[in-house]
Amino acid sequence: MRIKFFLTLLTVCMLAFVVGCAKAPQEAIDAANAALEAAKSAEADRYATAEYSAAKDSLDAANAEVEKQNSKFALFRNYGDASRILQSAVNAANAAASAAATNKEQVKAEAEQLMAQAQTAVTEAKGLMKRAPRGKEGRAALDLIQSDLSAVETQLSEAGSAMTSGDFLTARDKSKAALDKVNSIKDELMQAIGKKKMMTTKS
């Protein structure tokens, strides 16, 4: 009977110990790490820098809280705060990924629009070149402008490559610069055509 009594006492103690020990929220930790990786894959570090940094900070805080609890005596551990911070980290990472996707899509749309505008402007500039003053023997007197337009077309081609490779920021910058340049070429051509018209009217 003595043995039975001690066994019962031991069982009670062990049960109390087991029930009293909280477990680290490993699933939540894994989920937070996965969410941050997903945010990075979505280029949040480039298109939503602040949100991505916030998510990393949050994950660091959660990991520190988990270790803080791990440092305590088993019966006194409480992972409630860690779980809450981990959930915040997941939310922050998801927000970063979402913001990155939105920003990326916006930049992409802008780049596409600018590319289309620049290409239209190049076509218009080529049309204006036909109306611009020309020399004898069919030689265009606007070789320089043609050379400038070639450079702009090269720039647009580079923008297209950047777009294909998913580098929308570069594509947007290149398209915007190309558009500005081709617009200045168009202005130049319009001025030359204007002069020609004025001369024709005078004569």
């Binding site: 320089l144 450079a151 702009v152 090269t154 947007r172 910058d173 290149k174 915007k176 340049k181």
Partner: peptide, 27 residues
Amino acid sequence: FNTMPFSNPLRQKFVTGELLMMESELA
């Protein structure tokens, strides 16, 4: 030099530089 008829490579180098300056300004 704008009215001076330099070679196409020289002119394109200049225009590329101008476009890069515009990109730099955007960044």
